[in-house]
């Protein structure tokens, strides 16, 4: 276990290092490069030169990289080009807003999808199974932002039931009663997307298990069906789902860019889009790195969890390369 953990940890650190390298390379290939990100705008050429020297921007690139990495580790993401605001000041508030939105949608979709998938696996090709298949097909083929716009047109503009966009109604107290109606539409959009994948996945994961020998043995013993499904099958079927949840983290962290843009939700995804339009590279870099850190940590956690729940994983990894 310890060996497996250490190996995965080292791998994660390596990938994180590589991500930072790529990000740094991208900054340097951006028009204007890092100078544009770090220098106070509107300086004369001589003053800019002095400031570049003070910031170490005239030093060899490897040294710059190490210094940049050191800055990042101390939480200094640089400044915006316009108005010279520290990036952290813009970034951190949006992280929480995104977490609220994604957390609710993700939780909701899991709570619906896993029991639904289990039910469908016990009644293959039944009505419920077929409707789940339709939802999956729609969820995979429908542009999420289009679905969002349609919901806005129907529920906000035509029926006037729910707010059109934003996180809170302006001029009202920012409490949960204000937040909830604003959450409904974006959460619906996101939940449909997650649901499409998770129902399908939990169903096939269950089916995989339900036809194994030990399940037949359990049935042959005369065990009640309910107990077979929930006690014996479900436990093993849930294991691969952990990996899928880990793999979905990038979507969870960043995939809301579209939904947030449609509903004007002040989250990280919308910030990213806005800053891309404004060519604020420092903010873009910060968000890219931040999401990478979250994703890599999440995958590490999922893998370790997986190894704890299913000891076969560690053994497979030990005997050379696992295909």
């Amino acid at each position: 276990m310890r060996e497996y953990f250490l190996r995965r940890l080292l791998q994660s650190v390596l990938v994180l290092f590589l991500v930072s390298l790529v990000t740094f390379a991208l900054i340097h290939s951006a028009p204007g490069g890092p100078v544009r990100i770090y220098l106070t705008p509107g300086l004369s050429q001589e003053a800019a030169k002095v400031q570049a020297h003070n910031l170490g921007l005239d030093q060899p690139i490897p040294i710059q990289y190490v210094r940049w990495l050191g800055d990042l580790l101390q939480g200094n993401f640089g400044y915006t080009f316009k108005n010279h605001i520290p990036v952290g000041k813009i970034l951190w508030p949006t992280v929480g807003n995104t977490l609220i939105l994604m957390g609710v949608a993700w939780f909701l979709s899991l709570v619906i999808a896993i029991p639904w998938g289990i039910y469908n696996s016990t009644r293959e090709y039944g009505l419920s199974d077929q409707s789940a298949a339709v939802i999956s097909y729609l969820g995979f083929a429908m542009p999420t932002f289009w679905f969002g716009i349609l919901l806005q047109e129907l529920f906000s503009l035509k029926l006037n039931w729910l707010p059109l966009s934003d996180m809170y109604t302006m001029g009202q107290a920012r409490n949960i009663l204000n937040l909830l109606p604003h959450l409904v539409l974006p959460v619906t959009v996101l939940t449909l997307g997650f649901l499409a994948a998770y129902v399908k996945y939990s169903r096939s994961s269950m089916l995989e298990v339900l036809f194994q020998d030990y399940i037949r043995t359990a049935r042959a013993k005369g065990m009640p069906e309910r107990r077979v499904v929930f006690r014996h099958a479900l436990r093993n079927a849930l294991i691969p789902i952990i990996t899928v949840l880990g793999l979905d983290l990038p979507i969870l962290v960043g995939g809301a860019a579209l939904t947030e843009s449609v509903f004007n939700w002040p989250g990280m995804g919308r910030l990213f889009v806005e800053m891309a339009m404004a060519r604020e590279y420092s903010v873009l870099m910060a968000i890219t790195l931040l999401t990478a850190v979250i994703v890599i940590l999440g995958n590490l956690l999922a893998d370790i969890l997986y190894a704890v729940v299913d000891p076969r994983v560690q053994l497979a990894g030990r005997g050379g390369r696992a295909a």
Partner: peptide, 19 residues
């Protein structure tokens, strides 16, 4: 592959288009 999979691809696309 790991590096590309650890950043949301939509972000990566937006970033590259912006640059």
């Amino acid at each position: 592959v790991d590096v590309l999979n650890s950043v949301p691809l939509l972000f990566l696309n937006i970033l590259m288009l912006a640059i």
